[in-house]
Design a protein around this nucleic acid. Sequence first.
DNA 1: CTGAAAGCGCTTACAG
DNA 2: CTGAAAGCGCTTACAG
Lengths: 338, 338
Amino acid sequence: MAQKIKLSTIAESLGLSTATVSLALRDSPLVADNTREKIKERAQALGYIYNRRAASLRTSRSGIVGVVVHDIMNPFYAEILRAIESELDRNRQTFILSNHYDSVEKQRNFLETLLQLGADGVIMSPAIGTPPDDIRLAEDNNMPVILIARSIENVTLPTYRGDDAYGIALATNHLISLGHRCIAMIGGTDQTSTGRHRYAGYVEALEKANIEVDPKLRIPGPRTKRAGFEAAVNFLSLPQKPTAAVCWNDLVAIGLMSGIARAGLVPGKDISVTGYDDLEEASIATPALTTVWNGQSEVGRMAARALLDKLNGSTDADGLHLIRPEMRIRQSTSPLKS
Amino acid sequence: MAQKIKLSTIAESLGLSTATVSLALRDSPLVADNTREKIKERAQALGYIYNRRAASLRTSRSGIVGVVVHDIMNPFYAEILRAIESELDRNRQTFILSNHYDSVEKQRNFLETLLQLGADGVIMSPAIGTPPDDIRLAEDNNMPVILIARSIENVTLPTYRGDDAYGIALATNHLISLGHRCIAMIGGTDQTSTGRHRYAGYVEALEKANIEVDPKLRIPGPRTKRAGFEAAVNFLSLPQKPTAAVCWNDLVAIGLMSGIARAGLVPGKDISVTGYDDLEEASIATPALTTVWNGQSEVGRMAARALLDKLNGSTDADGLHLIRPEMRIRQSTSPLKS
DNA sequence: CTGAAAGCGCTTACAG
DNA sequence: CTGAAAGCGCTTACAG
């Protein structure tokens, strides 16, 4: 490369000022049509590259949006991210992604990086134990925050997520309606709002049906395929002999079904299993997974939309926005055999 | 927020110059120990946030690395990204991710964004049909490029990927050694280097074993679970009645096995299936998937390392670096029933 | 060990 | 419709 092409290079080569060139490249109506044409042609010919750092230093808008979730490799988040990506792309915002793996420290480092880069805003699924101060750090420095998937206690930010208690009750009620009475709950933790809501929804559904809640039927754990797979052993050796399992999510359910199959039982016939999220692979699994649609793409799209609106001065997105889950009945559940 | 805290705010509040403050915050030995202490304390107390755009404008290093792959939601890339992330994190580089979904245009937009942000370098798995000019664009503007997973014809950049021809031959030979003679190849395309190498490796292994290669036994297609699932119908209705399938990757294999199970056959017994990549879920599937380890984490780690070294002035990473794949034998393959 | 001053490449009033 | 000039917040020679 010979030497850096900048606005002034173009300006000099055409005998114009940098002001005019700057305006022309951003399609300002102030600039005469044919001046603009000439400028754009020359910029192209010289291989000019717009320096966003310089512009952003001047305007204090960066065109960058941060997104931080537990783990982008989890298909649940991946589906949300895909929706965020397409919404931000359409609005020519660059998005910077990070996993926090539920480390508050990693999350804080990322927020600081975003502040240093002058990010316009951040969409986050907060790490377990996120201190309100970390949120304040962002907001105090003019970087709006939108929450997805999880809430934070005592923090009133725009939040987009599924209605977990309602959704898990759908799954539980479905199993009850098939005649099941001994229903285990597999996966999840009380450390997140989601975890508490889902367990509460399960308990409430059982109580409404006058089924006694046995805490030993709850097998908490990570929310992964491997965790579901490994939980199968404990599940199958429960003294209560459950005939059905409400799983925290599709990953746990698919893992559990695989573990059940390894033990020589047939998931969907011998044991009914429900998932949660309705991931793309739920319908592909064998047996096809009965699950609860959790609106990942809705969550992503709405959260991105809310942030963009906020950047344009709107404020009416504050508060909790619940997506209403829907039941998806497939082959992994069947009537209780008598 | 009252007003922006900057270097000069700190400097004034302590009766020092911005030069000293700047040096102190970056731990320059030029600054007296107790001056540095005082400065750091004050910065902390004032809630100072370092402005990387300003710094980067001055130094022309941004601390940003771009990563672009086909689809981060594909676990194959996800596993690579995880390794890249941990390597870059350790070196305090921020990484910006993008999917190109094999759109050359989306990829070019991303490269331009990186240039505008002054990214220090980019790691990419190039989109199908990437023109050499797009690579040149990056390099001409001083942004080094490292390739992963796929090569580009006639481009000699540092490239890290598995040895596809060798790896797929491992899988094919494994099936041959079990007595299979009619072996289909499911998934993939000739449009990528990977696709061509894998098909070539399959063909070569058959030929070496004196098995006639029947092009109709190849069912090309996308590299997803859904594609594998949908291919099951075609696979099972092939007039040649293959007894085994070499799948493009684990996703296709898992989808195919599910499709085979839906049809009432038992994958691993009635039909032997091999995958490729050894994703985390390969060992969790039922039957556990026989597959080829493809070194995703090695690829990610080495590529990130190579870029970091290059940024520090090294040049010896150029050329092709092949990871040698390894066979992982599990339950999805079994001897041909006679 | 510390300071004064220039400059990175833009954009934005302001003037004409 | 176009230009001259200031300034965004840093870092880096250079001087002392």
